[in-house]
Design a protein around this nucleic acid. Structure first.
Lengths: 259, 259
DNA sequence: AAGTGGTCTAGACCACTCG
DNA sequence: GAGTGGTCTAGACCACTTG
């Protein structure tokens, strides 16, 4: 039934990934209706002249994404859950605003090398006497001030940042492009606070207005903490949109059951 | 080097999953230090007398969890990122409080079958004239009121709920045990609001205090929305702790690039 | 019994990194 | 060149669901 394009066997892109893309494109184009079964794995494999395992690898990945789900002995079905790209991930302010269709901008409050506070030393796992780069900015979306961010990064990891980076640009992009550091995971705490007079002035809200207080630590793949952020966002204009998924509890309880 | 236990080949538990568990247990027990390489896949496969593919399947799963990471041509390494179980997932209030070590309790404000509002009809994809079960509760942790939750569920999906469910217990547990519905995904919006006099009284805070406003829709695996929740949590006692991960952008931009 | 997804194998080959 | 992870195959077998 479906128009599954043939694969490019000379491409550097792995076959299983090509299949994944082809299927996802068909699903998003509405070729399959929600709740309807996909063609059986065997059929997909035969049609594309790949092995069962390769086809299954693609199916597995799409299951992990949540766009389809498999029932053993029955089939594979389209999930009604849409794959949204607007959910919270490890995103810089710039990326987040761009993905929401807003134009991000920044006003730099300060950009300097300094000695870290004790709590920063601990979260960023710094050596004694190590210095950090600190960047304070007011972030705006479509020229409307949304929040104040203060990022702290170990100088050791990006020694040229203070001289080569234009602090009005995207910090994440700079860290990725010049230092090969891509954020993989971020731990985040969100609390409610009240704007002080200084913050209120910067955000153009009245003193005492409720605000979101973010505390975030970002890590690259090897677990090295790279960035510590304290941020304040307007309570009246900012909201958090996220998608939560359920992960396999059995692995998490391993530690508890061991002893 | 490592003490990899032999596998149980008669178990119903798949070999790749057994390997995954064994490795995770060793990692969490501190047998490997952060940054150190795991034994090569070939060696793991040989030691456990499984094929390369099977061993790799286990490695892949652990990479997805973020506890290890692979560098092609180099090896597989322990990530310094800990696998925490306290992060936000699709959790009921009961589960969330239990995972934080607090004792959850509930005071039922109302529990009834009613006609849904227009916005609920849309989010829960209800038929015209379909009824819903509505449960309003004050949720407490260690007897301290933390929030007010109002859950709405299609009556069609749980026709016996009004007569068989004790509304002081865990709604998620009831839905899972009696109706086989396990929440797979939840979409959530968090905003800041101010407590009205009624809410303030229930939460024992002063009127006008800032509060978290949650709007959440939970889905089971096939994409069917099962629960719509509006909740208000105290801004002074509640905080959101979450872990964000970065997902493959190339798949998300598929739609944008198409046409 | 037939059809489905899930697991596993034994081996081949490739791409990458490092000394 | 040696060692590593990543891909892929062809086929076997199992577990599960449905008619």
């Amino acid at each position: 039934m479906a128009k599954l394009q043939q694969l490019d066997r000379n491409s550097v892109v792995p076959l299983h990934y090509q299949i994944q893309q082809r299927l996802l494109a068909l699903i998003q184009a509405g070729e399959f209706e929600a709740g309807q079964p996909l063609p059986p794995i065997q059929e997909i494999a035969a049609r594309l002249s790949v092995s069962h395992m390769t086809a299954r690898q693609a199916i597995k990945a799409l299951c992990d994404l949540g766009v389809i789900y498999s029932k053993q002995g029955v089939g594979t079905f389209i999930s009604g859950i849409k794959l949204e790209k607007n959910f919270r991930q490890v995103l810089s302010f710039s990326e987040e605003m761009e993905s929401r269709g807003s134009r991000p901008s920044s006003r730099v409050l300060s950009f300097k090398v300094r000695r870290p506070t004790a709590s920063v030393i601990e979260t960023l796992r710094l050596q004694p006497n190590e210095e950090v780069v600190e960047l304070k900015r007011v972030r705006s979306a479509n020229s409307l001030p949304m929040g104040i961010e203060c990022s702290t990064i170990p100088l050791r990891l990006c020694p040229d940042l203070p001289t080569t980076f234009d602090p009005r640009g995207s910090l994440y992009r700079e860290l990725a492009d010049h230092y090969g550091m891509n954020m993989a995971v971020a731990d985040e705490i969100v609390e409610i606070g009240l704007a002080g007079s200084k913050e209120a002035g910067l955000l153009k809200i009245s003193k005492g207005s409720p605000v979101f207080l973010f505390t975030r630590t970002s890590y690259i793949q090897n677990g090295q903490p790279v960035e510590f952020v304290r941020a304040t966002y307007r309570g009246d204009k900012y909201k958090i949109v996220s998608r939560l998924t359920r992960i396999d509890r059995s692995l998490l309880t391993l530690t508890a059951n061991r002893q």
